[in-house]
Design a binder for these strands. Sequence first.
DNA 1: ATCAAAATGTTATAACATAACGATCCAGTC
DNA 2: GACTGGATCGTTATGTTATAACATTTTGAT
Lengths: 164, 164
Amino acid sequence: MNTLLQRKPAHQCPEGRPLSAEEVCAERGLQLSEVQRSILEYLWRRGQPVGAYGLMRELKGTLTRQLSPPTVYRALEFLQKEGLVARIETKNAFVACARPHRNRAYVYFICDTCGASVEIESAEIEAQVAHDAAFLGFRIGRRVIELEGTCADCLSREAANAGC
Amino acid sequence: MNTLLQRKPAHQCPEGRPLSAEEVCAERGLQLSEVQRSILEYLWRRGQPVGAYGLMRELKGTLTRQLSPPTVYRALEFLQKEGLVARIETKNAFVACARPHRNRAYVYFICDTCGASVEIESAEIEAQVAHDAAFLGFRIGRRVIELEGTCADCLSREAANAGC
DNA sequence: ATCAAAATGTTATAACATAACGATCCAGTC
DNA sequence: GACTGGATCGTTATGTTATAACATTTTGAT
Ligand SMILES: [Zn+2]
Ligand SMILES: [Zn+2]
Ligand SMILES: [Zn+2]
Ligand SMILES: [Zn+2]
């Protein structure tokens, strides 16, 4: 059996209850700005990768601020540093992390059909990557592991349609 | 011990001898155009990820053609389809594959310091990824596995400088 | 109140990528 | 040789993502 620490969509905590920004701040002695908080909460609600310009469009109305590109990227940079948001390289987009974390081998499964994204932490993959790196004498910094494909929901929907 | 099918920089074959475009074409019944061939050969010589606009700049002089962005991206698309070139998502760049291939779990180690890139094929990582995907009921399409860090050469250079 | 650090505003631009449509090249066939 | 279909390329324009540079405002501590 595998070490899947996170088996739910990335915007939910393990018990299935969405975290609030306030809870996270309390836990970590963190004070989010309005922009940072609204981006984080939007990504939690959304549950799938969203581009920086998509965030701008979505949040433009709901915010007193103007939300120019530099502002969005700065807030995202902060949230990434705190381990609250991850960048999905294959989509040039950003997703809320399943839980605050840092510098581990998180693996993202991203559905080509519905866009959903699931974050897992796989000790086995991490160990194997470390092993291969050691063989090469390579010191690993950031790990990007993204698997594109079709999620279970979309697969069963596919199967249902094919059966008709 | 690990299954590292490729232990040399990505622009060399395992025996350390760079392939020529002609050899690849002969092997695969493939006819490369001038643009396709010159891009592939440049990436072989270079041995590290290069962006599309970098390719344009580098090849502008050496070519009778104009080499506009669409032309470069079309050639890169072709080379990727043939498994001769891989896109490095973390760099928005392209690198010659260690060998022609398709749809396997290739892993890229990319040095933040010198930009060098090494492609390996790790059966263990592939198996583990497949295992985790099966657990989620996820059907995998493209796999993107990119590890950023410091290569062995740059590490020893670092150590040498620190020793002074 | 004063100050320093953090966050944001603003303008402009860099860097990456594709849409759309016409022209050309080239291998195989008549 | 002329024809033809498919691949490649030219060209123009535009879309998308990301950052540089510098001014200003907000925030929280002293
Ligand atoms: Zn298991
Ligand atoms: Zn799906
Ligand atoms: Zn070889
Ligand atoms: Zn290096």
